[in-house]
Design a binder for these strands. Structure first.
Lengths: 158, 158
DNA sequence: CCTTAGTCGTTATGATATTTCATAGCAACC
DNA sequence: GGTTGCTATGAAATATCATAACGACTAAGG
């Protein structure tokens, strides 16, 4: 039950499948996956790592797709708003969604050594944070659940 | 089982007790609670809300305790490093610790309407994120668990 | 055609955080 | 007393992350 993000795998398929899934979702929901938005998604999918907005912007700039911060932030806003990407608060960075279609709240495992990030999902209501909120009479709208540490490979290497 | 942060309470006692507890801990551990560090702690304790580093810096500046960003960041680093305060990643802001002496990892409930923040604790090993990490062979060193939503009072008001 | 919602390009600015170099204070030691 | 090591501070500059605001373009529906 280790996570693909921490294992060797057919990564080209990750990208192709990821883009295809988002394209389908956009058609289904009447959203416009414009060139810049699509390219930002591909950039995010290119590795199982979180990327900063300016890092993404550098790539866009090199390709003539835009050079100013709002270009990257607008694309990222679109992708995160519709669940095609997520923001990692701990890193002030972004990552493509890898559990598409699943409505549960994301949980991230961030390796501080190789910088890979694995996404998992779990039902907030059944989680510790859900129980705590319930006990306090607090109504949760959004959760941030991120763990920092070492992935299996880096544990072994260390 | 609602949280004090969301209820009326003797807040002056929060501040006095909070500072006293940290003073004791510093003596016990041989740490120096310098004037700036102590003042930053008091500022953080002044409300059950998270404060930005520059907001804190404004207060220090007004009191002649320092005017450059590193002054605030150094004090905050000291306080967070030793568990006297926490960083709220979702807000890029800081809050005084309210579960002093308890070693478990913090969980925060952030009200988006009144900005109050309640701190709770739970054992990572027994939490959802702990189970997920274990399943993935991931070794957790630090967790970020924050829920955003409405506190009991604000739910009622809405 | 015309309106309108959505998107895009650009300038400027705001907000948060760190690096860097220099200095002050203090205690241990010879 | 002088040196060393350590911790904390001061000050300037810069790096990094994010948004506001405005005008222009475009495609879809009336």
């Amino acid at each position: 039950m280790t996570d693909p993000a921490f294992e060797a795998h057919d990564h080209h398929a990750c990208i192709v499948d990821g883009v295809a899934a988002v394209e389908r979702a956009c058609v289904a929901r009447g959203l416009q996956l414009t060139q810049t938005r699509k390219r930002v998604l591909e950039i995010l999918l290119s590795e199982h790592k979180a990327m900063g907005a300016y890092e993404i912007l550098d790539v866009l700039r090199a390709e003539g797709l835009g050079s100013q911060p709002p270009v990257a932030y607008r694309a990222l806003e679109f992708l995160t708003k519709h669940g095609f990407a997520h923001r990692i608060e701990r890193l002030n960075a972004f990552i493509a969604c890898s559990h598409f279609g699943d409505a549960h709240a994301p949980v991230f495992l961030i390796c501080r050594r190789c910088n890979s990030v694995a996404e998992s999902r779990s039902d907030v209501a059944k989680s510790e944070i859900g129980r705590i909120a319930k006990g306090a009479g607090f109504v949760i709208e959004r959760t941030v659940r991120e763990a920092e540490g070492l992935c299996p490979k880096c544990v072994e290497a260390a």
